[in-house]
């Protein structure tokens, strides 16, 4: 199972990187979402995917899945959400000011 998940994470990273290198600002933000998905899944996979109960003591199971990576991922999800929403609004403002979402047209000042 871990091997399959590792490959999935690799797919996330590959698609994310490919989109990050594209011209459209929207695609860049999408790529960041994909990369953070990849990172979250990687965190979960690395902790081991052994079967156990959900980490709720009320289930009174013999073994539980590891709760620590879940807490870490939860924090990461919220942070990446904050960053993504900020980026989205930033991209939106950029588009409003410059009338384009093409990164090549948004390249630095003309006097270079």
């Amino acid at each position: 199972m871990e091997i399959l998940m590792s490959i999935t994470v690799g797919v996330f990273f590959m698609v994310g990187t490919y989109l990050l290198l594209s011209k459209s600002l929207l695609k860049v933000i999408v790529s960041l979402i994909l990369l953070s998905h990849g990172a979250h899944l990687l965190l979960l996979t690395m902790a081991g995917l052994q079967r156990g109960a959900s980490p709720l003591l009320s289930l009174e199971a013999d073994s539980y899945t590891d709760p620590l990576p879940q807490a870490l991922i939860l924090t990461a999800i919220v942070i990446s959400f904050g960053v993504t929403s900020f980026l989205l609004v930033l991209a939106y403002r950029t588009y409003k000011e410059h009338k384009t979402d093409d990164l090549e047209q948004l390249r630095g000042s003309a006097d270079e």
Binding site: I7, V9, F13, T17, L21
Partner: peptide, 11 residues
Amino acid sequence: IISLGVGITVT
């Protein structure tokens, strides 16, 4: 090539 490289590296 680069994105394949990154994906393979991470895997």
